[in-house]
Design a protein around this nucleic acid. Structure first.
Lengths: 119, 119
DNA sequence: ATAATATATGAACAATAATTCATATGTTTG
DNA sequence: CAAACATATGAATTATTGTTCATATATTAT
């Protein structure tokens, strides 16, 4: 039954096979970093609010600011972060810039997150 | 065609109806905050690495540390964050604590995130 | 009981990031 | 062209957060 014994840590790893598998399935560092960056963008309640507002409609910076009770500057800064993460996209119309969700991953991710915290 | 005109910001909002809809669909502040907190947990490359390692197997703190080239303390601190977010769960066996993924949302969320950055 | 081992925790420090304020850019109107 | 307006940006400030180091807790073995 030595094979099934619970392994202790003095012995570096559980099983060589497991180590192999973990390391082989692990994406590249750069990808892991990018993934963390993506989630970081979702990890701020102001940005979450902005995204939720855009669930319903395309909105301009000024609308978002007034709707959420934020300053124009704060919203603009956060929209830049959201845009860099390709979560929203701008449409310029004269001096006004309307923002909308970039794609459906935004909705899906937020929905999945909500499911998790609501269970 | 006044109805379809692109609205300017001097007029508070686009349409009353849109404002109503945005505000009515917006979850409570506390929920938005919790959601941001959840994503914040995913928003760190060390924690992402730990989660990926646990995709393959239940692992103890020491294994994770050695596998990922981190200190025991750093891993323990991060596991506490992951546990608080109900993303991993511990199983104590003697002096060793094995961690595993708490549920399938973890896999789903990370998969969705990966999809987004890979497209 | 004492020593050894695995994990957890607290404090300190360094790095990031969010907001504010002032101002710049770009567009429209008179 | 000048004034008005919507948005963007840079610097400064404040707040958060990740890591390290030292140490505490808990369990096992001698």
């Amino acid at each position: 039954m030595a094979e099934n014994d619970v392994e202790r840590c003095g012995f570096l790893f559980v099983h060589e096979a497991v180590v192999e598998q973990v390391l082989s399935q692990m994406p590249e560092d750069e990808k892991l970093y990018d993934l963390a960056e993506l989630f970081k963008v979702f990890g701020d309640s102001t940005r979450i609010k902005i995204l939720y507002a855009l669930f319903e409609a395309e909105l301009c910076v000024c609308d978002i600011a007034q709707l959420l009770g934020l300053t124009q500057s704060a919203v603009s800064h956060q929209l830049r972060v959201l845009k860099a993460g390709r979560l929203v996209k701008p449409r310029k119309d004269g001096k006004t810039v309307f923002y909308s969700l970039a794609d459906d991953h935004v909705r899906t991710l937020i929905a999945q997150g909500m499911e998790h915290i609501e269970e």
